[in-house]
Design a protein around this nucleic acid. Structure first.
Lengths: 243, 243
DNA sequence: TGACACCAATCTGTGCAGGCATAAAAATAA
DNA sequence: TTATTTTTATGCCTGCACAGATTGGTGTCA
């Protein structure tokens, strides 16, 4: 048993709700769970509290534990993202995250050029140099890890904690992209050059240049992976009716 | 007692941790809480689970409940945002959210122009017309509510659930701005025109126009409220050392 | 003497079982 | 329809046993 009991219950219920095995509107009784999962009430209750925090369920007296629909799920919760990536909503989740990346990273580069501490600027230069090296060599494994470090570092160097916090899901996207074989055999020269230009612009406090070059990276990234989700339907929730 | 017991404990501890009354690294014992807050273990434990989910604490055997630092807090959790807005980090929180808005809303407008359902396009036109009306009249209360509906609807019309989910904190920003008297007596003509242009561009499926006009709104918005946080220090967390 | 590995005591969260209180849905009566 | 009672599942409390991490002591060896 790797982790705690209640974490298992969270995982069990959360993954099933997100992938649709337990549809929206279902009513679960704590007593049923107690019997089915062979755990005590306290474990169930703590798990339900956590799931309620992610917006997956609500628990009300006399009715039980009601499963909520996707509009209520917290799309920034790391567990919810993980579960969605492992479900049929994988495409929609990748699209949302990528669109968010495309929006945020150019701004992050701009802010990094303005505010990043010296050490981070230097590290970005170093990483981009290594990306050039291993990229030209065709060492995709090393390149991937450097790519992840690069983008996460730009996000952190923006000094915006909301940006920095996107590091984990963005790393997941980048890993997924190479695992799925969506990367070319060796990175394009342009892409290498853009990464280096971003690092140099940030080093030279050139906010506009940093933004422009990051935008170029984002455009190419988008083109490379948007095929993953052409099927996935978009979800429109009218904010008036929601609450 | 308005809400549930454990929600009170979450509120009590969460607000105190975020505003610094309980500093990073503090060790809290469940038994102490039980005595101090006069609630039972089960309540404490469920509250701690929720707080752990937000990244405010970790709970380990033999040591107790350890309070974590701001790098660990989930900056997208609505409660964390609320607590931060009510604390001395208010400026930093406003800045983060505004930078995120500036990044996201132009893209949201672009996507809305491409994908929004007809009903939402029409409603945007309606709202922008009403904004013109009440704006010119100087009815700031009505204007504020329309402004909120407008921006939240654009986010929803993007069909990106991560964008749509930013509605609540963005509404909080907009409300805060007028409550603090940062709005001019009556909205600028330019701002009214830009909102209308966004709505029209989206109606005409003009993605680029929607983006450009929304960018104009964002630029002005930023200039109007960036004075709120010139003091607040940026936080840079090296992603390598974090974990 | 001092460094290091090993073991036992202790402390605190984790999980279990069962009890009563309470709120809200459903059934019943007016 | 409206008001009242009944039903029932969660909310909350408590006592107990267990697991695992820290701490300190013990013994061995250099």
């Amino acid at each position: 048993m790797a982790t705690s009991l209640h974490a298992h219950v969270v995982e069990h219920l959360g993954s099933r709700i997100v992938n649709g095995q337990i549809p929206r509107g279902s009513i679960i009784l704590a007593a049923e769970l107690e019997a089915k999962l062979q755990v005590s009430r306290s474990v169930i209750r703590e798990a339900v509290r956590v799931l309620a925090q992610c917006g997956l369920v609500t628990s009300t007296k006399r009715v039980g534990i009601r499963v909520l629909g996707p509009e209520e799920w917290n799309p920034y919760d790391t567990q919810v993202i993980r579960w969605r990536l492992a479900s049929e909503q994988r495409g929609a989740q990748l699209r949302s995250l990528t669109e968010l990346r495309i929006s945020v990273e150019p701004m992050a580069a701009e802010l990094a050029a303005e505010f990043a501490p010296e050490a981070m600027r230097k590290e970005l230069l170093l990483i981009s140099a290594q990306m050039n090296h291993y990229g030209r060599q065709g060492d995709l494994r090393r390149f991937l890890e450097l790519d992840i470090r690069f983008h996460c570092l730009v996000l952190a160097a923006s000094g915006n904690e909301m940006f920095a916090n996107l590091a984990t899901p963005i790393a997941a996207i980048l890993r997924g992209r190479t695992e799925l074989g969506l990367m070319p055999e060796r990175p394009h020269e342009e892409a290498l050059a853009w990464h280096q230009s971003v690092a140099e612009s940030i080093s030279h406090l050139d906010a506009l240049g940093a933004r422009r070059n990051m935008e170029s990276i984002m455009r190419r990234t988008h083109n490379e992976i948007c095929s993953l989700w052409d099927g996935a339907p978009r979800v429109f929730v009218d904010p008036n009716t929601k609450k």
